[in-house]
Design a protein around this nucleic acid. Structure first.
Lengths: 258, 258
DNA sequence: CCTTATCGAGCGAGCGTTCGGTAGATAGAG
DNA sequence: CTCTATCTACCGAACGCTCGCTCGATAAGG
């Protein structure tokens, strides 16, 4: 899976030269991770019960928050939709703010974990690495759309502590892009006058995909075509003019449309 | 001010070939516009009193909302900071939601007014027109930063009616960009295979500037350099390769730094 | 003396959170 | 296997508080 030479088509899922990320965690795995990180505030001891309940609570909380905002979601709403009592909920968090922090920190952690472990196949070439970062970020947000929508909508409007967490996560993401761009410039793959602002401009293009997901669904835009376009725009901004003519096709069409 | 031939330098404020937008309204003018639009819900009759008070109320409301969110701002906070009583405030709006709508609709209206009236100098050339749209949007948000921050932060998380308003405004902004891109393609100035997604990608790049204003201030990035970079990225995405070599300098440096 | 702009105590609703209580699972003793 | 003591996960009424909003009183200008 990580050998750069083994990129040939293999069946209907035929893909372009860009390797996939390693598999993403499921929502259940995220909840298990959250449970482990908050053992002290979660009073339920049996892990299978706790994970199942926590997943239920978080999914409902994310769902309710994504229409109307986290502050607008009352614990009575959460109680009604989960079928649990108010007191029962407090076995899983000690305050509403803790509930928020659970989700935000898990999402921030996930981004860091996924983007910091590219397959060996892409790290050799800055162009490939950059394209992999873009594509992987988009696929990650697509797979866990409600979680990222929640994190984006709620990261602002909150006390210094949580706010700092969001800013740090944002900076970390940008640093992945700027590291690759810098390396590409050092290796002469990217234009020497590539703007230092470019890495900062990539993040909003990736956020656009999940923040305005409904808009692109309405227009019939696939993740593949969006990813390809962002890669195009970014590469055109940093590749030398001569390089544009030899720019590889971003992704074969007719792929992975369910 | 709109004569395309009078672009020569005139003093220290010397500028590049890109013409400025016509002058922007002041906060006071925006408030007068809001007052006119909400005559029926505002019970204060003397216009000079009403405009002054309304401006005070809106500025405090925007300020408080921009730390903590609109929902988190209580009318008691607003009462304390404005020095007005709770009852007194209700002479200027009939509900907290109306207060929100006043600001959102005025911002949406402003964007439409400003972007739909380019100076005659730029409409002839799609490249110039596109650059003017980008630069003007950035300067407008810079001049009325708290208003746009407010509109961005509060447009989500609200009932269908207000939400629709935000979506419509967003679509309208995008339509300005796509109209120019389309015309440029028809005239052969832009690449015929320019992605139909490009116009949608411009908006998040413009929002980035005012949403993350603190970040760019910390890094010492000027509006001029940010505007130049976005223009670069967008033009590289739609100009033919050959056109890149003849791309005009975006904006002279050492300009308009207070 | 009427009009107009403002005041501020107070209302009902709803919020996050607590806590005494309970049903069912669990486990050790007989 | 049965009885019983203990524990665990959950319940839901109640508390203190803050919210958006109302309304009769009031002060100042013409």
């Amino acid at each position: 899976m990580t050998d750069p030479t083994q990129r040939a088509a293999h069946g209907a899922g035929e893909r372009a030269s860009l390797p996939m990320m390693d598999t993403l965690p499921t929502a259940t795995q995220l909840c298990a991770s959250i449970l482990a990180r908050h053992q002290d505030t979660i009073s339920v001891r049996k892990p299978n019960i706790a994970v199942a309940r926590l997943q239920q609570i978080l999914e409902v909380a994310i769902d309710l928050s994504n229409k109307g905002g986290f502050q607008a979601m009352s614990l009575r709403d959460l109680s009604r939709e989960t079928g649990m009592s108010a007191g029962g909920l407090y076995a899983y968090f000690d305050s509403k703010t803790t509930l928020l922090k659970m989700i935000l920190s898990e999402v921030a952690d996930l981004v860091q974990r996924v983007l910091s472990s590219p397959p060996a196949a892409v790290t050799a070439d800055p162009v490939m690495h950059l394209r992999w970062l873009i594509d992987t970020h988009l696929r990650m947000t697509e797979a866990l759309l409600p979680w990222f929508t929640f994190a984006f909508m709620e990261a602002k409007n909150f006390p210094p502590a949580e706010r700092r967490m969001a800013v740090d996560s944002e900076m970390l993401t940008e640093s992945f892009f700027s590291a690759v761009v810098l390396r590409g410039m050092e290796e002469g793959v990217f234009r020497p006058d590539t703007s230092p602002l470019l890495p900062a401009l990539i993040k909003p293009l990736l956020q656009e995909w999940y923040v305005k997901r409904a808009k692109y669904r309405r227009r019939g835009i696939t993740l593949e075509s969006y990813s390809a376009e962002v890669q195009q725009v970014v590469l055109r901004a940093c590749l030398p003019e001569a390089g544009l003519f030899t720019m590889p096709p971003i992704r074969k069409s007719g792929d992975a449309r369910p």
